[in-house]
């Protein structure tokens, strides 16, 4: 590397400040929820090498863990990559140090949602639509979910070309299926919310 380039690297390098108490507390809460420790990670990159969505990520799994190791909580929680994780569990299965990375990404996604830092609105809208069907009927209502998702993301005609062929094949239930224990399911949602969770 030339001297000039080296100097530039220093200029753009991360300026580390001591980790604050609230950052420390956040990280240990995430670790507890995920049932894993970020300090086991020695940055080999195997998780990222095998991640099928890494090509689209701003901070792939290895970097998310590095950010947390360095206490850079804000950067990590605003990363789009925590929303692009498909929960395929490949990283976790392959980590030589036994870090449960998929569970960590999951916990980060939930923390971001709680703090309202939703970098990928479409994925969050999909999840919200999905769960509102479950809350109301006890089961997923695919047709309703598609409609609600399209409305909430302003993509009115998304996948419209697939709608009719789906119907012709008997793959669309016109009405949602409602279970008898709807109230039980609704109660589950309410109790979870009382405990501090989000819907």
């Amino acid at each position: 590397m030339s001297g000039k380039k080296g100097a530039k690297t220093v200029e753009t390098a991360v300026k580390l400040t001591p980790i604050t108490e609230s950052q420390k507390e956040f990280i240990s809460r995430i670790e507890k929820e995920a049932g894993t420790s970020i300090h086991l990670c020695y940055q080999c990159g195997k998780c990222t090498a095998g991640c099928p969505a890494a090509f689209a990520m701003d901070y792939p799994p290895r970097k998310i863990i590095r950010l947390l190791q360095l206490g850079m909580v804000d950067t990590a929680i605003n990363a789009e990559s925590i929303w692009l994780c498909a929960s395929c569990e490949t990283c976790t299965a392959r980590c030589p140090k036994g870090v449960n990375i998929a569970s960590l990404m999951d916990a980060m996604r939930r923390a971001a949602l709680k703090q309202g830092k939703i970098t990928d609105k479409k994925i969050a809208a999909f999840n919200k639509g999905f769960l509102s069907g479950v809350k109301n009927f006890g089961r997923t209502y695919e047709a309703g979910l598609t409609l609600q998702y399209n409305l909430s993301t302003g993509q009115l005609f998304k996948d419209m070309a697939l709608g009719l062929p789906m119907m012709n094949r008997g793959k669309v239930s016109i009405f949602p299926e409602r279970i008898k224990g709807r109230d039980e399911v609704k109660k589950i949602f309410e109790k979870v919310q009382q405990l501090g969770g989000e819907e």
Binding site: D106, R110, K128, L131, G181, I188, K191, V192, E198
Partner: peptide, 21 residues
């Protein structure tokens, strides 16, 4: 009278919900 498991949407949203469903 089974209910939906919540799938990825539940565990992306709330841990307790993803276990309770």
């Amino acid at each position: 009278d089974w209910n939906c498991c919540g799938a990825t949407s539940a565990h992306s949203t709330d841990k307790m919900l993803s276990l309770a469903l």
